[in-house]
Design a protein around this nucleic acid. Structure first.
Length: 702
DNA sequence: CTTGGGTCCGTCA
DNA sequence: TTGACGGAC
């Protein structure tokens, strides 16, 4: 079955805006028209984006994204929502945990993992995948550092995550596993759909030899164009010839350093634990002659946008217990043939549609002048947007919200009915259909669980197994800045490059015994037994994975690794396993208390511990959490959460005229369709809506 | 009128 | 802090 998402332009023809992989194979591409696509693929199913208030309605996609996000949160408390269908996960902790208990290793567990450099990119050939992955495990170079090992374990966890996402949401996804977000995202795109790709750091430069600059995230726009044209860099490896200083001179200091580092596969951007968007907004374009210049139209659209915003803000408040405090009105005005973008921000003190309308209109009047004699707004408005942000907590407002819902229930007779096509809705009918629908929702949701077809395959899961890489960036810099710290550098070298050289080990600390050295390697969990005299086995990942990892008790004492506790190196510290790091931190804290010093090192360490705290405080599926059937959200108070859904439905029902008309008629016309399947839903919903929207539009024009 | 429109995020002055 | 703008999906 072929499915794709399309966009319907009323004046023009149906345009295809997204194509699933099956249809792509048949030669269907974006920007084709519907009939064009049918020629390539007669069995194609065209699905249009639903429309509400004469505008594309993306709730369906947002909800789906949230569902997936909820699953991801079970595997890490550091998940970053990157867009509606992408997320980054920091799996550092999960990898460390898994490495402690790793047993019965079998390469078959990596069911869909490719490794860059060990297979052809953009091909999902299974034989090639399997051979490539095994070759990587057997490659002794692959164990030059523990990083690769972590990637292998990370990829194993990602296999499990993706399997869980599929079984619980029905969505397939791709993933990239690497040491930073940029590389993970890059890797993710190399084997689509429904596969995952490891990008080891040591394979980056080879990959870069043929990789166009613009494929790297952040280089897809003007900056990338500039790098290609002004610097003459066709591929990423072309960037290597420039020094950091040169790049900083060409661009600014920050961009220059970023380019320098990313050309070497390095990127410092952390995965920030954040599941909620920082702003909620909606907008609409009015291209060409559609530009707004009449009060009636301007008001009509501000009102539409205010309605949508109000609805979404309300839902957000109940679900996320926060309130937006700032409203930003953005607009593009056409000033002598050119679009001028501007925006105005005002305090947002109420979520009521009318209040939003008032302040938005006032803000708009500041940039757009009205000639009342001929009712003309100038300059004409080509784009209008409302966005709310600056959120703060709102726990007490929740109760107020429930009260409001009850009140509006009493006032529901005010409901305006469409006099055209749709049947009038009496209050009783309204109520009964509401509960009826609540019931049907449950049915359709349980059906969804059973029937949902995993064809919404555009979910990207970028997984980031952040570990020693960021430390390596700093290590390089420090080498240049403070060459006197050769001792620390030796430790770093040991951590990142397992050199098979006992003499070097002695160098860590002149007094270290051979036993100490052995322990030292256990910390790194690169359990190639370097101290065995007859090393027959090669240093491969396979050999490591077949060994049992030693217990924490056997690790070297923090005092031994850091003889001078006041001089802890952050890079070294961050390369250590979390539990070990905590030990060191405790030791350090007690030391600091004693001394009460205020050195540079102290500040750094405070920063580290804050970071840890931040992650553990972020949203996660704790012991007392439940998954909501309705929205997939992980919630602590299940009953409150269910009440919230009821409240939202109720509120929508009573306060939103178009919604009432839509829902009621669609439930009376085709009850069966409520038991929807994912595939047919969008189309059905839309055809209903298109009819409805016409009549609603008529209503407003009267 | 478009090589999608609607949203988001982040940086910079 | 606000507003302009780049970048991505």
């Amino acid at each position: 079955m072929m499915i794709l998402t399309i966009f319907v332009d009323i004046l023009w023809q149906i345009r295809i805006i997204a194509v699933n992989y099956e249809a792509r194979d048949k030669g269907v591409i974006r920007s084709m028209r519907g009939d064009d696509a049918k020629k390539h693929c007669p069995e194609i199913i065209l699905v249009s984006v639903p429309t509400v208030r004469e505008k594309a309605d993306l709730t369906r996609y947002r909800d789906a994204g949230r569902e997936v996000l909820a699953v991801l949160c079970r595997f890490s408390n550091c998940v970053q929502r990157a867009s509606v269908d992408e997320a980054y996960i920091d799996l550092t902790k999960a990898v460390e945990e898994r490495m402690k208990s790793l047993s019965q290793f079998s390469p078959d567990k990596w069911k869909s993992t490719f490794v860059v450099g060990y297979s052809t990119n953009s091909s999902n050939d299974e034989g090639e995948r399997k051979n490539g992955f095994r070759a990587w495990l057997e490659d002794s170079d692959s164990l030059k550092n523990t990083a690769s090992l972590k990637l292998a374990v990370g990829a194993l966890i990602v296999e499990e995550i993706r399997e869980t996402v599929l079984s619980e949401t029905g969505f397939k996804c791709s993933a990239g596993i690497a040491h930073n977000k940029i590389l993970a995202k890059l890797a993710c795109g190399l084997h689509k759909p429904n596969r995952q790709t490891i990008l080891p750091l040591e394979c980056v430069l080879e990959l870069y030899k043929t990789l166009p600059v613009k494929k790297i995230k952040n280089l897809g726009g003007k900056l990338g164009d500039n790098v290609v044209e002004k610097l003459g860099c066709k591929t990423m490896s072309d960037l290597l010839k420039f020094t950091e200083k040169e790049l900083q001179a060409k661009y600014d200091e920050k961009a220059g350093s970023w380019l320098y580092n990313i050309a070497r596969g390095l990127d410092n951007e952390p995965v920030t634990a954040r599941l909620l968007s920082k702003s909620i907004g909606c907008c609409k374009n009015f291209p060409g002659r559609a530009a707004l210049n009449k009060t009636k139209d301007v008001h009509h659209w501000i009102n539409k946008l205010a309605e949508e915003l109000s609805e979404r803000l309300l839902e957000d408040e109940v679900m996320n217990k926060r309130r937006a405090n700032l409203l930003t009105v953005s607009m593009h005005l056409e000033i002598n043939k050119k679009d001028n973008a501007s925006s105005k921000s005002v305090v947002l003190s109420s979520y009521e549609v009318d209040k939003i309308f008032i302040v938005a209109e006032q803000a708009l009047r500041k940039v757009c002048k009205v000639d009342p004699s001929i009712d003309n707004w100038y300059p004409p408005i080509k784009h209008l947007g409302l966005s709310a942000g600056k959120f703060s907590n709102s726990s007490n407002k929740i109760l107020k919200f429930f009260k409001l819902s009850e009140n509006s229930n009493l006032n529901s007779t005010k409901t305006n009915c469409n006099t055209d096509n749709a049947a009038p809705i009496s209050e009783n009918e309204n109520k009964s259909s509401f509960f009826e629908r609540m019931f049907q929702r449950d049915v359709s949701d349980s059906n969804k669980k059973l029937n949902m077809v995993p064809d919404f395959s555009k979910h990207d899961l970028y997984v980031d197994s952040e570990d020693s890489q960021s430390s390596m960036v700093k290590a390089v810099n420090e080498n240049r800045e403070s060459p006197d710290e050769s001792q620390k550098d030796n430790i770093k070298r040991k951590l990142f490059n397992l050199e098979n050289d006992d003499n070097e080990l002695e160098h860590i600390d002149g007094k270290k015994t051979e036993t100490d050295s052995k322990k030292y390697f256990v910390i790194e969990q690169s359990a190639v037994n370097l101290n065995e005299k007859n090393v027959e086995k090669k240093n491969t990942l396979t050999n490591f994975l077949n060994q049992q990892v030693k217990q924490e008790e056997e690790w070297i004492k923090p005092e031994e690794l850091f003889p001078d506790i006041s001089q802890i190196d952050d890079d070294l510290l961050s390369a250590l396993p979390l539990s070990y790091r905590n030990k060191v931190m405790k030791l350090k804290e007690s030391f600091d208390r004693d001394l009460n010093t205020k050195e540079h090192g102290v500040i750094n360490n405070i920063a580290v511990s804050n970071g840890e705290k931040l992650s553990s405080e972020s949203l996660s599926a704790g012991n007392s959490s439940f998954k909501c059937e309705e929205c997939g959200e992980i919630v602590e108070d299940y009953e409150l959460h269910q009440d919230m859904h009821v409240a939202i439905k109720l509120d929508k029902e009573l306060n939103s005229i178009p919604q009432v008309v839509n829902r009621t008629s669609s439930s009376t016309i085709n009850d069966k369709d409520k038991k929807r399947k994912l595939k047919s839903c969008g189309k059905k919903k839309n055809s209903d809506n298109t009819k409805k929207m016409k009549s609603i539009d008529m209503f407003f024009k009267k």
